[in-house]
Structures are given as C-alpha cells and as structure tokens.
Design a protein around this nucleic acid. Structure first.
Lengths: 186, 186
DNA sequence: TCAAAGTGGAACACTGATGTTCCGTTTCGG
DNA sequence: CCGAAACGGAACATCAGTGTTCCACTTTGA
C-alpha cells in the first residue's frame, strides 16, 4: 500500500507550504481571519485552498503540526541537556524567539494551549529539574511558574520585536537577563 | 437639556451591569462569542441586549470603558506615589490581579492594546522613573520592558489562578517575587 | 508534443450571526 | 392600584463565511 507522505513533491509541496505559511501569518494578525483572506495572502485561489484543506479545521491541524515540529527543532538546536541548566536556558531563548508568529498563535489561543504542554513541557520540566539539582533555580517558585515565566517573557520579547523598533539583539539580551534573574536562586 | 447619564437608575442600571459583566466573562472565554450567548449568560433576551447596545461595537465600547475605570481604581488603591517605588509595585500586583477576566481581554486582543497604553502607561512610567532615581531598577532594561514584564507576569499569574488549583495567596507571592527579582537593580 | 496534473474563477446552497420590528406579558413606581 | 417602563420572544431581511461543483485555462514532465 502507498504510505501517506508527509513530504509531497514539487508543485504540491510548494503550494501547500505557501498556504500554511500564509495561514500562520494571517492568523497571527487576526485569529478569525477568513479562508478567503488566507488564500489571497498565499496568492492562491480559494478553490485551491479547499483542495488541500477541505475544512478550516484541516488547515488549523496543519498549523498545529507545523508548530509542534518547529518547537521540536528549537529544542534540538538548543541542546537542552548539554552544559548547565542555566546555559541551556540561555541558548533556548533566541531559538524560541525564532518561532515568530507561531508565538502569537500559541498565546492568543488560536491553537489550543495543549500544544505547548505536549511538545514543550517534557523537555522543559527536565531542564528545570536539572536546574533544581544544581541549586540554580529559586526553590520558592513552582516548576510550572518557572516555565510559565519563560513563556510570558518570551511573548513580551516577541511583542517588543513586532511593535517597537528595538533591535533583535537588545531584545534577546533583555529577555535572557530578565528570565535569568527572575528564576535564579537568590 | 437632559444630560447623558453615566449612572442609570434602578432596573436599567441592574440590567446594563448584568449584560456588561456577562460580556466580560464570555468574551474572556471566547473572543468571538455571539451576542446571543452573551444575552443568555446575562439571563436576558437578545432583544433586550440590543435595546441597551444597538450594535456589537457599542457593547465592546462599554467593556472598554469598564476596563479603563477598573484600571484607574486599581491605581488609586495601590497608592502608587506613596513609599518607595518597590513598595508601590508590590501593592500594585494584587490590585491588578483583581481585574480578573479583564486581564484576559487585554491580553488576547479583544480590546485594543491601546487601552493599556492610555489608562496605565502614564502612572506606570512615572513609577518606573521614580524607581530609577532611587537606583532600585535595573538600568539594563528599557522602561517599556520593565512595564511589559509586569504585565507578562501578571498574565501568567491570572492564567495560573484560572487553570491550576494554586491558591491565590501563593500566586500573588510568586508574582511579586518574580517581578521584583526580574526588574531589580543587581 | 501532448496528456495529466494543477490551478483559478464563477456559481450555488447552506449556515450562523446580526440588526430590526412588532406585540403580548411582566414589573415597578407614583 | 394602574399606567408607564421594561422585558422576552417570534419573525424577518441581510450579510459574510463556508463548503461544493463545474469548467476552462496553464504548467509540467514523460
């Protein structure tokens, strides 16, 4: 039997990617954007969009899958289990910031919050646990609060990048500094 | 001529309040909730809702006004200009947390972000400026970043209160501790 | 080159939200 | 107690988004 292909070939792959990318962009701008606007943003006919994603929920599922994959990539690039937990956390910040509009989707509820839990909670909980062993994380804060602080400050960083004209480098510096100080043991 | 009354009397005031309260609650649950659902949540007929707020935008405007008023109240209760900036910031945290669902509306974009700017930025900027003078605020962080950190952690605190079974007192403690450490001068 | 694959647009039915009108009933205040 | 104010529900027109079908036009690759 023919396996369901994650990777389609040639034109189909390009079109599909254009649609998903446009969906992420437009959904970040307005969570209740119409499929017609997404199709326009992808420079594609609405008919074609429905050919790839018969229902709106199918498109959202593709965006969810994209998000999960990008989260996994970020974890891999940050090499969470190398060096001290503190170093790993510093490496993770700029990687997460590369998620871009996907951060908006995660924070505005376009995607269910469970996406964060399923894709990111395990590696982050392990990271926090490691940080507690070496005594570098504030024992007065919950595991969930420590991780939540990372996400909350990350959203601030992304919002700052989008709105103000603050340079990416400065934003990353403030992000790492704030998270580090907030969760570090006194 | 008869002045437009901010405060209506008797039955009208009660009904109006029930509708606005229900709108805040339901909009926090789902930003694209229908007017029918809001009317149901307010135990009011949809006709009645339209009698008070002819269009959806009129209801949203009332919610916006409510938010601004509640923000002003919070600032007043926190007495931002008494004591040190650090003390004032500690007093402000639990007051802001009392905003409840309004925090969700501010963070999910149901209300334009300008609501925060217009109602809260002036007092907060003054507070941060005062904190800088006495050297208690980290000079490596922007004014906007300091204020943004407050809001970001506040949203984490509210989300923690809603989802998990964490006690309000513990959430307030972690919120004040995290904000304090994050923005304090080293 | 030529058929298959991919695409876009027009047209259609369907649905749910919105805003409005009308009218009978309930509630409240003088 | 009684009239005015407030209310709820039914019905209606309107509108935008959705999902579908059909057909003609490109692009592609064997």
């Amino acid at each position: 039997m023919t396996e369901v292909q994650d990777v389609e070939k040639g034109a189909r792959a390009r079109t599909r990617r254009a649609i998903v990318d446009a969906a992420v962009r437009e959904l970040a701008r307005d969570a209740s954007v119409s499929l017609g606007q997404i199709a326009d943003a992808a420079s594609v006919g609405r008919t074609t969009l429905h050919r790839y994603f018969p229902e709106r929920s199918d498109l959202l599922e593709a965006v969810r899958a994209e998000t999960t994959a990008r989260l996994d990539e970020a974890h891999a690039r940050a090499r969470l289990d190398e060096g001290t937990a503190r170093e790993a956390l510093r490496r993770l910040c700029p990687e997460y910031l590369l998620l871009g509009d996907l951060l908006t989707l995660l924070f505005t509820g376009v995607l269910p919050e469970s996406v964060i839990d399923e894709a990111a909670d395990d590696p982050l909980l392990a990271l926090v646990a490691r940080g507690r062993e070496d005594g570098s994380i504030d024992p007065a804060l919950d595991d969930a609060w420590v991780i939540g602080t990372l996400w909350a400050q990350l959203y601030l960083a992304w919002a700052t990048l989008c709105e103000a004209g603050t340079a990416r480098h400065d934003v990353v510096q403030m992000l790492m500094r704030t998270v580090d100080k907030a969760v570090a043991a006194p």
